[in-house]
């Protein structure tokens, strides 16, 4: 029976929405990696429809967790059991599959993070601040500028014989520098390799600044697909880097694991079911004119019922909806030490 109980993890990121289903022994049953394309609600709906077809009847989803920058939105749509930040989700997933890991390097579409694990818990972390120079979107853009598929990016960089040095501190300057090197006659392979090195240098100097990077090092997130970056990390750190099997959906797996723990602790799930997304969801945003802040309030409706509201600095609208008081509720569910 228990083999048929599944747990859904959703990582609603800026570039991709990842959905996974795991069983109660945390084996991956299904995974979907979908481009967000600026339409998270539709993509999420389509994804869930695909999932329900893939698993067929006989399985039951016993819990749901969401993470990523769109975690609140996803949770509002799905009535998730748990809403978690990306750091905790990634940390949980790695601790479960690679318990001996000490460092996680994670590079996604819009942000990058480093997570240090010690004694089986997250002990320190950092995220990139305002700069996207070292993330997937930037690589994407450079690949298309050079006219190569992002999938070939890594293997091309491995062919480089004498990498050029690219100024990688800032995406804009990196781009001008790349053009400069191109005009000097450097080969595309050498430039690409130079870009991988620059990105890694930038990551280690900013995100990884002052962090005690110990082996075992795990590299995940969408950019981990790029063997050029992996190689550049190995060279810079002088360590072997492990890329887990499901590197691109580790956040979603973490969310699913947390959902399982939560559902087990409470003995029930608030998840509204895969079919629930067939209902009519509408979002509306408006400016609140009650004070000069003019916050942009987003309202999520299911049919005619307001399911969630957010965007207000003062909390007047968001705290008017019961379901959003989850943060606190989650904490209160925790037995005190």
């Amino acid at each position: 029976m228990t083999g048929k109980d599944l747990y859904l993890g959703v990582d609603a990121g800026s570039v991709s929405i990842n959905l996974v289903l795991i069983d109660s022994r945390y084996r991956l049953i299904e995974k979907l990696y979908l481009r967000t394309q600026g339409r998270p609600i539709e993509v999420l709906k389509e994804g869930l429809e695909n999932l329900s077809q893939l698993i067929g009847p006989g399985f039951k989803i016993k819990g749901c967790g969401t993470t990523g920058s769109g975690r609140l939105l996803a949770s509002a749509l799905l009535s998730a059991d748990i809403v978690k930040n990306e750091i905790t989700a990634h940390g949980t997933a790695v601790l479960n599959f690679i318990p001996e890991a000490s460092t996680i390097l994670e590079i996604g579409g819009q942000d990058s993070k480093i997570i240090l694990l010690r004694n089986g818990v997250v002990s320190d972390f950092a995220m990139n601040t305002v700069c996207a120079a070292g993330t997937g979107s930037f690589l994407d853009r450079q690949a298309s500028r050079l006219g190569i598929a992002i999938e070939d990016f890594g293997s091309l960089s491995l062919k480089s014989t004498s990498p050029v040095r690219i100024a990688g501190r800032c995406a804009v300057f990196a781009e001008s520098d790349m053009i400069h090197k191109q005009q000097m006659g450097c080969s595309a392979e050498d430039i690409i390799k130079g870009l991988c090195d620059a990105l890694v240098r930038n990551y280690l100097n900013n995100v990884g600044k002052g962090k005690d990077i110990q082996p075992l090092i795990v590299f995940q997130g969408g950019v981990a697909a790029n063997i050029g970056i992996k190689k550049a990390f190995e060279e810079a750190l002088g360590q072997r880097i492990i890329v887990p099997d499901n590197f691109e959906v580790m956040g979603a797996i973490g969310a699913a694991i947390l959902a399982h723990r939560k559902a087990k602790a409470t003995g029930s799930t608030s998840f509204s079911g895969l079919a629930s997304l067939k209902k009519d969801f509408t979002t509306k945003s408006y400016e609140c004119h009650d004070c000069p802040n003019l916050c942009e309030i987003v309202e999520i409706r299911v049919g005619s019922k307001v399911k969630a509201k957010w965007g207000d600095r003062c909390g007047k609208w968001s705290s008017s909806i019961e379901s959003l008081n989850k943060e606190k509720e989650l904490n209160e569910g925790v037995p005190s030490a």
């Binding site: 997250v122 972390f125 601040t129 947390l258 925790v334 005190s336 030490a337």
Partner: peptide
Amino acid sequence: LTGEAGYMTRLEAFVDLLKQKKGKVI
């Protein structure tokens, strides 16, 4: 220029980190 979403993520992650360190379940 500080983005509120990233700020909140850091706060939540930090609170989770402290909880884990104290041996609480998250």
